[in-house]
Simulated scan of single mutants.
Amino acid sequence: MDFTFKEEQRQFADALRRWVDKDYSFEARNKIIHSEAGVSDAAWATLAELGMTALPVPEAQGGFNGSAVDMLVVMQELGRGLVVEPYLATVLGAEFLRLGGGHDALLQQVAAGELKLACALGEKQARHDLFDIRTRATPTGEGYLLDGAKSVVLHGAQAGALIVSARSGGEQRDSAGISLFVVPADSAGVGVRDYRTIDGQRAASITFTQVRLPAASLLGAAGAGWDILDAAADYGATLLCAEAVGAMDAIFAATLEYLKTRTQFGAPIGKFQALQHRMADMFIHLEQARSMAMLAAGKVGSSDAEERRRTVSAAKVRVGQAAKFVGQQAVQLHGGIGVTNELPAAHHFKRLTMIELTLGDSDHHLERFIAQPGFKQTA
């Protein structure tokens, strides 16, 4: 696999980094986090102007038809800059629309930056099993009635439309019988409770009470949504791996700079061999995570679903392990200030912790990897 980024990809990354450095500083981000909205309309407009909202959308719907590798360079910069805008939620929703088909007008709005999406997939009893669904979609003569609840919907309150998984058949934990719907956020019967997560992002608990949906709101075929849900979740996990690499890049650089400037016993602490060894270990974990994130980006679009699942789960496990190690070492090497909100490194570690828990933690993906056909356990 060629790990060399194309010129266009480097230009995207450079444009994002310049914007973050100039207009999305750590201080500016803190103001956004503590604002009533928790996000910035101006920042979103800039992301759209830079072409970021159009990047993953097919050309036929006004986008650039960007690959997962194109998205990797973008997500790395967003992770490095601790950007809290609803970009991940929107591009993941766009992937659902792309895979399901039939909603071109919505994809056009996403590409233009006119529509934000959120994916209401998880439920409180399911933990990381997205097929564990109690939310019901009952067919009616004109469409469906939606009833249920979704938990920790990333940027659910900021979205104009929701991608919702619901059970139209089968038992609670069956992969068959799952249907996907596009639900306008302002539909009658939709209840949203917005809150801030530990990493400064926004999430929501969303309830659906007798929400009437037309037949056109169905995404893909009725009862056959699992393949789309599984593939889109892998796409989202791949983007999270890339974002985590960006965050680890930033926390590693900050720690290295601190070791160069913090003095003890008349010398920079970076001169102490024991701390140099710890930085070397951090670097190894970071580069292994980077390699796995790149591999996942290259394989997530594979037509071989088993290969996709194996690769994405392996990446999520390795990136999760690296994020924990790099984050903990960074905090310890900074000393007491490593856990203060005044230091960007603390916020990077919080974001890394949330990435680990989103769309399946390391334990979940390790079990998933082992469960794939072809895995042979040796004594």
Score class of each variant (00 low, 15 high):
residue 229 L to E: 09
residue 232 A to N: 02
residue 263 T to C: 09
residue 207 T to D: 09
residue 288 Q to H: 12
residue 244 A to C: 08
residue 284 I to R: 13
residue 182 V to Q: 02
residue 245 V to N: 03
residue 248 M to S: 01
residue 192 V to P: 01
residue 217 S to F: 03
residue 218 L to Q: 06
residue 249 D to I: 00
residue 277 H to D: 15
residue 210 Q to W: 02
residue 159 A to N: 06
residue 200 G to Q: 03
residue 211 V to C: 04
residue 177 G to R: 09
residue 285 H to A: 14
residue 287 E to C: 01
residue 217 S to R: 03
residue 159 A to I: 02
residue 250 A to L: 01
residue 209 T to I: 09
residue 237 A to M: 08
residue 205 S to T: 14
residue 258 Y to L: 10
residue 265 F to H: 13
residue 222 A to L: 05
residue 159 A to F: 02
residue 258 Y to D: 08
residue 241 C to V: 07
residue 178 I to L: 15
residue 175 S to M: 15
residue 246 G to K: 05
residue 285 H to K: 11
residue 208 F to E: 07
residue 260 K to F: 06
residue 194 D to M: 03
residue 190 V to Q: 00
residue 205 S to W: 11
residue 259 L to I: 07
residue 186 D to P: 00
residue 180 L to V: 01
residue 189 G to E: 01
residue 240 L to D: 04
residue 271 K to V: 14
residue 195 Y to V: 02
residue 181 F to H: 01
residue 231 A to S: 13
residue 185 A to G: 11
residue 267 A to L: 15
residue 192 V to C: 08
residue 243 E to Q: 14
residue 174 D to C: 12
residue 281 D to A: 14
residue 257 E to S: 13
residue 229 L to W: 02
residue 265 F to M: 14
residue 157 A to R: 10
residue 277 H to Y: 13
residue 259 L to R: 06
residue 251 I to V: 14
residue 177 G to K: 11
residue 238 T to E: 07
residue 206 I to N: 03
residue 231 A to F: 09
residue 234 D to R: 15
residue 251 I to W: 00
residue 253 A to D: 09
residue 285 H to W: 11
residue 162 L to M: 01
residue 267 A to G: 04
residue 243 E to N: 07
residue 194 D to Y: 04
residue 239 L to H: 07
residue 215 A to M: 05
residue 181 F to E: 00
residue 189 G to W: 00
residue 224 A to C: 09
residue 281 D to L: 13
residue 188 A to R: 12
residue 182 V to A: 14
residue 256 L to I: 00
residue 172 Q to I: 15
residue 237 A to S: 15
residue 281 D to E: 14
residue 238 T to S: 10
residue 177 G to C: 11
residue 274 A to R: 11
residue 255 T to C: 02
residue 203 A to D: 10
residue 199 D to N: 12
residue 229 L to I: 07
residue 226 W to V: 06
residue 204 A to R: 03
residue 162 L to H: 08
residue 285 H to E: 13
residue 246 G to Y: 01
residue 228 I to R: 00
residue 206 I to K: 01
residue 198 I to P: 07
residue 157 A to N: 06
residue 218 L to P: 03
residue 172 Q to S: 12
residue 201 Q to I: 00
residue 212 R to Q: 14
residue 276 Q to G: 12
residue 163 I to Y: 04
residue 231 A to Y: 10
residue 282 M to G: 07
residue 213 L to H: 00
residue 271 K to M: 15
residue 196 R to S: 10
residue 209 T to A: 14
residue 210 Q to Y: 02
residue 198 I to K: 10
residue 164 V to Q: 05
residue 167 R to Q: 12
residue 208 F to Q: 05
residue 275 L to V: 07
residue 234 D to V: 03
residue 171 E to C: 11
residue 161 A to K: 10
residue 188 A to E: 15
residue 268 P to R: 09
residue 233 A to W: 11
residue 236 G to E: 08
residue 248 M to N: 02
residue 162 L to S: 04
residue 225 G to C: 09
residue 222 A to C: 08
residue 279 M to T: 13
residue 270 G to F: 08
residue 187 S to C: 05
residue 164 V to H: 06
residue 216 A to N: 06
residue 179 S to Q: 02
residue 213 L to Q: 06
residue 161 A to F: 03
residue 202 R to Y: 07
residue 242 A to Y: 01
residue 173 R to P: 10
residue 220 G to L: 06
residue 167 R to M: 11
residue 232 A to I: 07
residue 261 T to K: 13
residue 273 Q to C: 10
residue 235 Y to C: 09
residue 200 G to K: 03
residue 199 D to A: 08
residue 260 K to I: 00
residue 188 A to K: 12
residue 157 A to D: 06
residue 201 Q to N: 13
